[in-house]
Design a protein around this nucleic acid. Sequence first.
DNA 1: ATACATAATTGTAATTATTACAAATTTATC
DNA 2: GATAAATTTGTAATAATTACAATTATGTAT
Lengths: 141, 141
Amino acid sequence: MDKYTELLKNKNISPSIQRVKVLQYLDKNRTHPTVEQIYTGIKGELPTLSKTTVYNVLQLLEEKKVIKSISGSDGREHYDFCRLPHGHFKCVKCGNVYDVEENFVYQGEQMIDGHKITDYNLVFKGICKNCLNKMDAKNEK
Amino acid sequence: MDKYTELLKNKNISPSIQRVKVLQYLDKNRTHPTVEQIYTGIKGELPTLSKTTVYNVLQLLEEKKVIKSISGSDGREHYDFCRLPHGHFKCVKCGNVYDVEENFVYQGEQMIDGHKITDYNLVFKGICKNCLNKMDAKNEK
DNA sequence: ATACATAATTGTAATTATTACAAATTTATC
DNA sequence: GATAAATTTGTAATAATTACAATTATGTAT
């Protein structure tokens, strides 16, 4: 049983050939492809494939958190294998830092101001759960 | 001369009434509005307004870095006043941290894992310009 | 002020991504 | 193997965006 079939089964998704192929394509092409690209990319191996199926599969895989949709500024949706957790949250009250599951995918340049980007991280600031609770407790006295 | 007229002039954009109104709308409505929302939002004050004009103005303002377009996962573009710089870059070689002008706008939840988000920051990692240069110099010897 | 050139706006039509939906096919279950 | 459920398919509808030509407004020189 191949890797993708297994992944789908683990997520309680019946591993149809279409689903497996879409998933495989997204794993092998980590370039944030569009629906069109995915469709033409696997149409050769699955000649009966319908574009509607690609839409259906992508929607399902996103619901089940197997993939992530990211919106380009080009009027098309792009898709990517899930990479998470990828965020941190720092509380401005107590200073604690928490890992958060923000499955955000950076879509911008690979170079910025001449620096070569190899990784990134979204850092949030605010008031953490615990401090919020304490503040509520105070207000209710 | 109002604030928006001034801002446009500073950017060398002739301050037509349509441009001023779009800009004003985006300043007063920091909710990442869509073209549709902007259009209906100012149509009352500018009855002759065309939707094409809204598209034109938004494209121009984005080119001139006055606003930022952000793509929701809902098939529509959203627009926002520019807020930058909002990123940092940390070099994995020398450890230096640089401010970078990444005018990314976070579009996700305002709460995450029960924590209240009030600010955010995109942090990049990689190899900085200086270290890249040094590495090149070495390779060319 | 008037005539002219340039820039901006407008409205319509075309394009493109996405969704809705019903029919056909496949898969699972008894 | 028969039946029901799930999945895929193709077509048609919807909605956002773009292309483009015509109109309107603005600026400049005489």
